[in-house]
Each structure stands twice: as structure tokens, then as C-alpha cells.
Amino acid sequence: MVMSDAFWIILTGSLVAATSGLLGCFLVLRKMALVGDAISHAVLPGIAIAFLISGSRSSVPMLLGAAAFGLFCTVLIEVFSKRARVQEDAAIGISFTWLFAIGVILITFFADKVDLDQECVLYGEIAFVGFETWLGIPVAVWTLGVLLIFILAMIGLGYKGLFITTFDPEYATTLGISVAGWHYLLMSSVSVTTVFTFESVGAILVVAFLIIPAATAYLLTHKLKTMLLLATLIGITSSILGYYLALWLNASISGSMVVVLGVLFIVALAVSRGKRMQISAFS
């Protein structure tokens, strides 16, 4: 069975969007959207080093190592803000720009050994997803599929822990639940997801997939479970529509997917506004 490129690209986009969207819900609710942004930039040096050592793009252990840089970034932010008493927004800004800068330096310096061009860093290569396959299915689909299953399992099993530490961390502490443990579990998941989705959508657009579907879903529902479901669906929709938008404009596929996400967000913003005005008109 040979599937068309279009199918694989949309599927890859959907997997990226679904995985990021699920994690993004928790980031948005924890008011850590920008930490997600920071992590997605900060994994760049890790990826560069992973490529340098393994010489390939799909060495899973290497990429997991790269994800450690994302965690390192959250630790760096904490060191800057808690120990050195830099205000938090600046701590985030300094940490990720610095790590990103180091990443760019590494890529330029080892340009002959690291097969990563700057374009890929910025907007990914989802168009070429079909180039590398295993058992007739693109490698990216395999890895992202496994990742999605992992994330789903984590959210399914850890739903209560994530829920309580997000809603009321202080209360969770009084029950003896480790708030820091859940925090780092979530941050590790975001780092790993960023690294694995990086190749498809690029470092900067990952953050769009993390935040926009979650924020859109947040506007549309008052239930956490519905929010998770909606974020996934919104991500998949944008992946389908974005592909055809890109085809029509002959432009970047991942960029187009995010443009669709942005438009969906604006629609949701208008709808939720309208609903609220209706309610206030009645009451």
C-alpha cells in the first residue's frame, strides 16, 4: 500500500499538533506558555550536539540527550530567578536566547559535519517527511506516533497528579504530593516533544503548536477533559487545512499550518466574545 505524500505530511502534522496540543493545555493553565517557548528554542544546542556525535537525524538516544537541554533551560531559568534574583520574564528571555545563540554557533561552526541548515532550524522540513521510511511508513510517523502514545499514557495515568498540581500546587503539597516532581515530568515531556517535532516544524513554530490549540480550546470550554480533546482536534484540523493552504500558495507547510491555527484562534476569540455578550444581554 503506497500512501501519497500529502497523506503522510498531514499525518505527521497531526501527530505533532496532537502531542503538542495536549501538553500545551497544561502549560497554558500553569501560565507557563513562555517557558514552553523557551524550551523549544533551548533544545537547539542539544540537537546540534546530538547530530554531531551520532551523525544522523534519527538516533533516538541522542535525541533524548538533546531533550536534556530543554530541562537544563528550565533549571537555568530557576537559577537566574530564584538564586540570582533576576525577575522572571527577564530570566526566561536571557536563558533561551543564550542557549539558542549557542545552538546557532554550533551549527555554523560544524556546518560540514552537522547536516542541519538554518532554514530547517526555523521552519522545519515536513515536506520531506516521506524521504526516509521504514516498512513503508515514514520514520517521522513512527517516532511521533510512539511519542504520542507515551504522552497519552502519561496524561491518562497522571491525570490526577497533573490536574491537582496545576490547579492548586500549595494544596497538593499539603496532601504530600510532590509538586516539583510533576513539574519536571511535564517539562521533560515538553522537552522531548520539542526535540522530536523540531525536524518537522522547526524550533520557533513548535511553540505555536504548544500554545495556540490549547489557548483556543481554553476559550471554548470549561472542562479540562474537553479542553484536551478540543486542542487535539484543533491541531489536526489545522494540519489538514494548513497543508492545502501551503499547496495553494506554494509556501512553507508548517508555517501555513500555524497560520490556520492563528485564524482558528481568532474565530474562537470572536465566538466566545459573542457568547459572553449574549449572556450579559440576558442577565
Binding site: 501560565k31 506558555a33 521552519y123 513554530l205 505555536a208 500554545i211 495556540i212 501551503a246 500555524v258
Partner: peptide
């Protein structure tokens, strides 16, 4: 929506338009 998410949305949305 809180300011942090709003900033994230704005920057990635505008950037994506730029990339396209």
C-alpha cells in the same frame, strides 16, 4: 487568556505568517 499565552500566540502566529 493570560498575558504569557497571549504573547506566545502573537509571536508564533505573526512569525508563521512571515514564514509563509
Amino acid at each position: 487568556i493570560k498575558p504569557d499565552a497571549a504573547i506566545g500566540i502573537a509571536l508564533s502566529f505573526f512569525f508563521a505568517i512571515g514564514i509563509v
